[in-house]
Amino acid sequence: MVAKQAAIRTFGLTKAYGDILALFNLDLEVSRGEVFGFLGPNGSGKTTTIRLLLDFIRPTSGRAEILGLDTRKHAFDLRRRVGNLPGDFMIYPQLTVDAFFKLCSGGRPGGMERARTLAERFGLDPGRKVGTLSSGNRQKAGLVQSLMHDPELVILDEPTSGLDPLVKEEFYGLVDEEKGRGKTIFLSSHVLPEIERICDRVGIVREGRLIAVEKVDSLKRHKRRRMAVTFAMPVPGAALNWGADGAVEVLASGNDHLELSIPEGSVDGVVKILAGLPVADLVFPEATLEEAFMSLYEGPAPQDPGPQVESRGDAS
């Protein structure tokens, strides 16, 4: 049942370049209609994964399916159904934007009409030569190209790179619309607020290994959160008993202030303790994906040769 619904499935997907392991044993499933963010710093394996999915490079072992079809055996058919924005792409600078869209429209009906609509929406001049475009406008042309055929799945590598904030918002709106139309979007990024804004789930990859796949909210909840408390009058340290298990860490303390690191599930206890104290101010910001991301990147790199998936959220 789940297999039929998956937009992307990989089975032990591995890519090595000589002794360098670019991607190791990736088992990943992205459901249809989902916006999935693939997170990781440069060189972590994001682009390798995308290039494997698009059959630009071939796996050392393992395999992948897109829309239920093997990516190697059905690469040609899949290109009709999948849109792609490569990272840092370039096309012939002599072509106009419109000619570039025409080049990409072959074999798929209705593409040019949608391309012109999207170009207008992004404020892209179709008469300009690609070589004269700024990096942001070139990225817009790439985005239009990836969406112009109304693909069932769109794979985007760093899609908002070079875009100004207004166009980014336009792009986010477009992603929401596409999701509303049942399309699946798989995007790689290291812009965490963006992932937080548009993605349903994220996969985090580190040194070629998938270390977490979760819903964005769920991932944030796993993060320890900081709380800053200011007291109305001096409070002796002895009055503060956070329990013997050491779950709550005191990051900084004084007679009139306190900074705590609180794990998931301990908030209630902390609030009850503070209720008996003269609290003048309390700052407890929402956990960010960045904090969750950074916490997953703390500590040594995974060395276990087996699959590194620590947790998996519900795809629904």
Binding site: L54, F56, F76, R79, R80, V82, G83, N84, P86, D88, F89, M90, I91, Y92, L103, C104, G106, G107, R108, G142, Q145, S146
Partner: peptide, 14 residues
């Protein structure tokens, strides 16, 4: 070299 191959081969073309 110029990165155009990724765009061209993302189209329905062997």
């Amino acid at each position: 070299e110029r990165g155009a191959l990724d765009i061209l081969l993302a189209q329905p073309l062997h």
